[in-house]
Simulated assay, not measured.
Amino acid sequence: MSIANYGLKEIKSELKHLSAAQIAEICLRMAKYKKENKELLAYLLFDADNESAFIESIKSEAGMMYSQLNSNSYQMAKGIRKILRFVNKHVKFAGSKQVEVELLLQFCRDYVDYVDRRANYKPLRQIILRQLTKLKTTINKLHEDLQFDYLQEYETLVLDADNKLSWVNKSEFLM
């Protein structure tokens, strides 16, 4: 016999019938069993109200992770994927396209600054190419005013990547 799966609609309607103390108890119990639930709850309680400080803390943490990368191409690719998972987890917590663009722009800037320009390891090269494509589509989903601001930063990033990394072709990524 398995536990029944309920949709968000049923869960939301059931939560409306509970008291604040019961909801707090349920949240704490969820946080106890999974690290990601605890991190999401901590974000919602402590960081959601100050998004700019949250973004800066994630940028600095990712920057520190970049500075500790191994010089071996295989190990470097593993480390960069770890940084990308870290960034994507926090993007998911924020749930905002603007935060996603900010953090991915910084991820790509750090990549261009820290990765060995002569690296010939294809998985290492593919990471930046996929993220530039993702950035391009995400910027297009933003409001027009934000698009204009981030588009300038994105194009500067692409030009910088094209100058520093031989495997980045600016014509593929410029809008």
Results as ranks from 00 to 15, higher is better:
75 Q>N: 15
93 F>Y: 08
51 E>W: 11
48 A>C: 13
73 S>H: 10
174 L>H: 03
137 T>R: 02
17 H>N: 15
166 S>P: 09
125 R>G: 08
172 E>S: 07
66 Y>R: 04
35 K>W: 03
101 V>L: 04
79 G>T: 02
8 L>D: 06
139 I>H: 00
27 C>G: 08
96 S>M: 12
64 M>S: 12
22 Q>Y: 06
130 R>N: 13
68 Q>W: 09
156 T>G: 12
140 N>E: 14
117 R>T: 08
45 L>R: 11
34 K>P: 03
166 S>K: 10
101 V>A: 02
71 S>H: 02
50 N>G: 01
16 K>D: 07
168 V>W: 10
154 Y>G: 02
130 R>G: 08
121 Y>P: 00
88 N>D: 14
115 V>F: 01
157 L>D: 09
29 R>V: 04
149 D>K: 12
23 I>L: 13
20 A>L: 08
90 H>C: 05
35 K>C: 06
10 E>K: 14
151 L>I: 03
168 V>M: 06
76 M>V: 07
72 N>W: 01
62 A>V: 04
135 L>S: 01
119 A>N: 07
60 S>C: 11
170 K>S: 11
53 A>E: 13
107 F>G: 04
158 V>N: 00
61 E>A: 13
47 D>S: 08
67 S>F: 08
90 H>Y: 15
117 R>K: 11
50 N>K: 11
147 Q>Y: 03
58 I>A: 01
38 K>I: 08
38 K>T: 09
139 I>F: 00
66 Y>A: 12
131 Q>K: 14
91 V>W: 08
101 V>C: 02
1 M>Y: 12
46 F>R: 02
65 M>E: 03
37 N>Q: 07
12 K>R: 15
135 L>G: 00
99 V>W: 00
14 E>H: 03
16 K>C: 05
150 Y>W: 04
164 K>V: 10
111 Y>L: 14
17 H>M: 14
157 L>Q: 05
125 R>Y: 11
119 A>M: 07
125 R>A: 11
